[in-house]
């Protein structure tokens, strides 16, 4: 068997599947995004840029901006909460590190709907947290915890914190402990060693974690749908609505493409940051 045949047999099926069920569908969406909506919800084969100009309409631009704001808050919270956690795992005895990390990742791989639902139970007006506050006498009346941006951010952080920790851990664990010792040996305090050595060396992990959490958050549908209660519309919901209720597929396609473009841009930034820092990209 020649090397070419071998590669064809091995790579062919996967590439064909991706071509058929990933690339072709995305190409169709790309084409749709330049077509007009039909009178009864179909597609009219007329070229237009309207779907993109419409996305710049303050109404939709506002949704993009508020989505980005929520995604940014989620990312920041996950980073601040996740960095010490990842550091803690990396500082744990070697044989504990993998079990600790698996424990972090376990929820990430399980049912997202149900994990989101758990927060409805917790944040509800009659939910566990409000009930607890009442019992403890800390609140006279239930706090509006659910169906707002706060709930969405909590839900997203809950969903993607594990991923952030994983990305940070793989960066922190690759630090050579001797470089930290060298810094201490040269007279730096713990804090200065962290700021001057640890932090710069883990920039690739920070970039990877942040970009992925941001991308996963901004395109999310379930969390704003269930925890935002439909009050806060995010890009994901907007696309969902264009396809399933407004039946404006071309506009939905345009929005989807803007989302993909944003994602590509951020991934590019992440790749550049990782290369500059001398590390590799994502090591999931």
């Amino acid at each position: 068997m020649s090397e070419l045949t071998r590669r064809l047999v091995l790579l062919g099926p996967g590439l064909a599947w991706f071509a058929l069920f990933l690339v072709a569908p995305c190409a169709i969406v790309f084409v749709y995004s330049f077509l007009e909506r039909g009178t009864y919800g179909g597609i009219d084969r007329v070229f237009t840029l309207e779907n993109y100009t419409r996305a710049a309409d303050p109404l939709y631009l506002g949704i993009f901006i508020s989505s980005a704001r929520i995604a940014a808050m989620t990312t920041l919270a996950a980073l601040l909460f996740g960095y010490p956690a990842a550091y803690g795992i990396a500082a744990a005895p070697k044989r504990w590190q993998v079990p600790l990390l698996i424990l972090v990742m376990l929820p990430f791989w399980s049912n997202y709907l149900i994990r989101t639902y758990a927060w409805i139970v917790l944040l509800n007006r009659e939910g566990l947290i409000n009930h607890g506050l009442e019992v403890l006498g800390l609140a006279d009346e239930p706090l509006p915890l659910l169906y707002n941006d706060f709930a969405i951010v909590v839900g997203l952080v809950y969903g993607y914190l594990p991923f952030m920790v994983l990305a940070l851990y793989s960066s922190i664990a690759r630090l050579n402990p001797e470089t930290l010792e060298a810094s201490a040996d040269l007279g730096a305090s713990g804090l200065r060693t962290f700021l001057r050595v640890t932090l710069p060396l883990t920039v690739p992990g920070i970039a990877a974690g942040c970009v992925f959490v941001f991308v996963l958050s901004i395109g999310n549908f379930i969390t704003p749908d269930l925890l935002g209660g439909g009050r806060t519309l995010m890009v994901g919901n907007l696309i969902f609505n264009q396809f399933l209720s407004a039946r404006d597929w071309p506009f939905g396609s345009g929005l989807a493409f803007l989302l993909i473009a944003l994602m590509m841009l951020l991934l590019l930034v992440q790749a550049v940051v990782a290369r500059r820092a001398g590390g590799a990209g994502l090591h999931a």
Partner: peptide, 21 residues
């Protein structure tokens, strides 16, 4: 990069793309 694509593309985008397809 090709392998990571389906892992990180927002589900909603893949969902509408497949529906359109």
């Amino acid at each position: 990069a090709a392998i990571y694509m389906p892992m990180i593309i927002p589900d909603i985008v893949l969902a509408i793309a497949l529906l359109s397809f």
